[in-house]
Computed example of a mutant assay.
Amino acid sequence: MSNFVLQGAEAHYGATRVLGPLSISVDEGEHVALIGKSGAGKSTLLSLMYDRWRSQSVALMPQALGLVDTLSVFHNVYMGRLDRHRWWRNLATLAKPWKRDIDEIVALLEEVGIAEKRWTPCGELSGGQRQRVAAARVLYQQGELLLADEPVSALDGPQASSVMEKLTRGYPRTVLAMHDLELALSFCTRIVGLKEGAIVLDAPSETLSAAALQDLY
């Protein structure tokens, strides 16, 4: 099992320090919500975590999603495991996917409610549909840790809850930058609050309320 620990981590923009120094660890079974107003350092911390831990079976769901608009929903999800196959198999999949890959990916697309779009180019999808494709891709990728930046921001209440449940169930540990405090408290076991690039709160979700977290905004 990998060791996910940052000690005295910092991030700079030019000569200006924008994050840290800070220390944080993520243990197995923990689902961490990063909260704080825009510019507090949530996305920067996620990027720093990914840079430090990317060799340790980490999946990333960036806010920009990183989908290829000209490829189908199926092929965008398949990209989650590109590094596990030989180049010729990946190339062949562009023209004629294997049935076992189709079956596995369609099952994930059904879980996030977008299976009917499996052969639709991602460039033709709405924002919420694209976010569900990106969620299916990281679920297909699997790993020891998921880092996700606002993974359900384009989804409505029931869809957002459904995808959050699947992401936190699909990974043994997650770190999710969140703006929806109710969702963060419902699906994450730990809340880390950021302000001006520093950690100002780190507590179990069960000890907090959405009202108590408003001071971070």
Rank of each mutant, 00 (worst) to 15 (best):
D51C: 13
I114K: 06
L208D: 02
A33H: 01
E124P: 04
L48I: 01
P158M: 12
T168E: 09
E206D: 08
A107W: 07
F187P: 00
E165M: 12
H75P: 04
L22W: 08
L82K: 10
V192P: 02
G193W: 04
Y140D: 03
Y171M: 02
E110H: 13
Y78T: 03
A95G: 11
A136L: 14
G128R: 00
Q142C: 11
G20L: 02
L167C: 09
L201S: 05
Q131G: 07
Q159D: 05
Q141H: 04
K42P: 09
P62D: 07
R89T: 15
L194K: 03
W88E: 15
A115W: 00
G193V: 04
T44K: 05
S209R: 11
V138D: 07
K42F: 11
G127M: 02
V73H: 01
W87F: 15
E104P: 04
V133T: 02
L201T: 11
D83H: 00
K99R: 15
I105W: 06
S161T: 14
D202E: 11
V26Y: 05
A107M: 14
D83A: 13
R169C: 11
N76E: 07
W53I: 02
M1P: 12
Q214T: 08
D215Y: 15
E116L: 02
S23C: 07
N3H: 12
V163M: 04
A198V: 10
Y140W: 15
I105K: 04
E150W: 12
A135D: 10
G123S: 03
E10W: 06
G170C: 09
